[in-house]
Design a binder for these strands. Structure first.
Lengths: 205, 205, 205, 205
DNA sequence: GGATAATCGAGACGGTACGTCCAGTCTTTGG
DNA sequence: CCAAAGACTGGACGTACCGTCTCGATTATCC
């Protein structure tokens, strides 16, 4: 109930038994409805009642499959976005990372980015939902960056003494910061400025 | 009513007339109560009803002074934190920035950091509150970094082609990212790793 | 403050001093605004705030002139209706009383009748307002009937052993009953049936 | 939701399905609490919040069962009064009607009569509540008079050309009028005077 | 003719109740 | 036996209006 397995695994309730076809149908129906609601009105529209009404899955059943409404939304959103941002391959490490930052920035600036920020916000006060969000969305994103990073490491282009997590946070944290606070817009130029600064450092050498 | 003035100014209602003492008393009482509630139970505890009950200020009046509960909390929090993080002065630009990142990281990791993340989360779905949060909290924080940054510029230590906003986001965005998602802890070591990476860049020179 | 003088006298506050012209202006302005509000939205529209806003008379002043909003409305309504129903003179006592009942029935069925019922309803939980309603509206209506009744007495047409109050209540109480409960419509036919029954009695002679 | 069924039927929500015991329990609990509140402080005491607090039924549920607080109170009051006024049987039609008027007058003069007037007043500005009041209280009272009236008709004691509704309004309208306006007291003598006048007519024969 | 004191407009304020919304739990019934 | 249906509690929301209050500005009579 509290251990989301993520894309590579299985959602918690599914292990209880050797796969009940009805459970799967129900699970998918709920996610489909949630996806639609997220598209139409963002996270605020994806209330438990709305999901139940639209999917035909009862509220009680929803709570058997997920710990909270945020969790449902996180899983639905994560699936939707699974392959939304393809890995860039520009030939150079710097180009790849720059391209990735630009893509993610555009994603954040899109309607889906709004949902992303709403889910991130909801995760703050809903640890159960946060776990699902990490498992179904963030993990795959970080994995993508890890691939790029390791490609750069193999080429000797990036500092070997920098952790991949640190690198990821440095490249995308600033975008998230802007997205959440709204103090500055998420333009391509801004994304590029941030990426360049991250890649080359803030200090004069 | 919708234009939070921030620390340097006055909250909206106070301009209407040549200062109504009652308004000021009420305003302060509400903020005091809110501060206490935030300390005790974080943002979730600072409901409008609770603020009204504890402060003796009626709900209707609260809504005349602020557009939403997030806004009250943001102003209360901003005042509380006004001078919580003193500017470091280590003698070197790198030392100052490193120290500042470490201080902010510790702040985020503290109970106040939790409130910060809750306010940031609430800002996502409450534009009125977000304005207050920016005006009463974020602005002063960014101003502090700006001071350090300009000090570094004067010394010729930092890249002149990097915007101060970009620099700020790069240094603190990663911390915010970790705070919000909880995917990684906010330790001193992590803060230092992020800061060093930001200062020296991710790429091999 | 609690003793409405009625049409023949003066409202309470006016006695305090040898007539302040401003008081009179204020009084009239409030009543004018209230009349307009009653016409537009009935008693529910005549809130103290609305009266104050429309008349330019402050709320505090309103409460110096009247004990409650119902009282203001009652006085405004009473003045408006002062000469709305002229005394019939058909030549016969029965004709006069029948005509009067018909006129009053039509009045109750009109928009003003709605306001009447609202005032009557408000009087139930507002004794201060009730006094004004009786003084400024009901009294003059009862006086009119008294005139007819005494005319009938002089002619020897009506039972001398029946009190004028009893007669008044008998003729108009049924109409008020219908107006308040809405269980039956207030048509001319119904009014006539009631009046005839009242005049000739329910029992076979 | 808007069609009160009255004593002979069932409140709206109960038809949805073949009897939900929970609904019934909740319904009764709300009515019990309301009855108690009415007894203690009349209609003003029977606020939705108070009913919810005392009965343990949540406000949301109350609004699912009744359209307004007046409706709850009307149903509670109607049940309470269901058999409060037994039908008189004096042997003569005139005696029965006189007795009934006297009983009703005493009822109006009692604390319950105050509640009655408050409900009637509330019905004026609350059509939803009015329907409940008519269905749960007024209807049964009118039915009682109808019985007496028909008894009189069978005996040939009462005018056959007078409608039972007209007769009812004529006998009780005056009492209601006095109750609502308070211009005259509701004594036994007054009741008798009114009843005699109604039975024998106002005009000299 | 200026001082004195009531009177007023403006509107902030506490208080009470409203009616609504949603989360999450629990009960009943049908397949 | 599981799931749909949906009733239910609990708690917060934001609004409306009441009647009281404080504040200055404005008279208008009296000295």
């Amino acid at each position: 109930m509290t251990d989301p397995a993520g894309p590579g695994g299985q959602a918690h309730a599914l292990f209880a038994r050797p796969v009940k076809p009805r459970s799967i149908k129900v699970h998918e129906a709920a996610l489909d409805a949630t996806r639609a609601l997220l598209r139409e009105g963002g996270l605020p529209a994806a209330t438990i009642d709305a999901i139940a009404a639209r999917s035909g899955v009862s509220k009680a059943t929803l709570y058997k499959h997920w710990p909270s409404r945020t969790a449902v939304a996180a899983e639905a959103f994560g699936r939707d976005m699974a392959d939304a941002v393809p890995l860039p391959d520009t030939g150079t490490t710097e180009g790849d990372l720059l391209a990735q930052v630009r893509l993610v920035s555009r994603f954040y600036a899109s309607p889906e980015g709004t949902v992303f920020s709403q889910l991130l916000a909801a995760s703050v006060t809903d640890e159960g939902g946060a776990a699902y969000f990490r498992a179904w969305f963030l993990a795959s994103r970080r994995a993508a960056v890890r691939t790029l990073w390791e490609r750069g490491l193999a080429r000797g282009d990036v500092r070997a003494d920098v952790d991949v997590d640190t690198a990821t946070d440095l490249l995308f944290g600033p975008l998230v910061f802007r997205l959440m606070t709204g103090h500055l817009p998420l333009t391509d130029d801004a994304a590029e400025a941030v990426a360049r600064a991250a890649l080359h450092g803030l200090l004069e050498e």
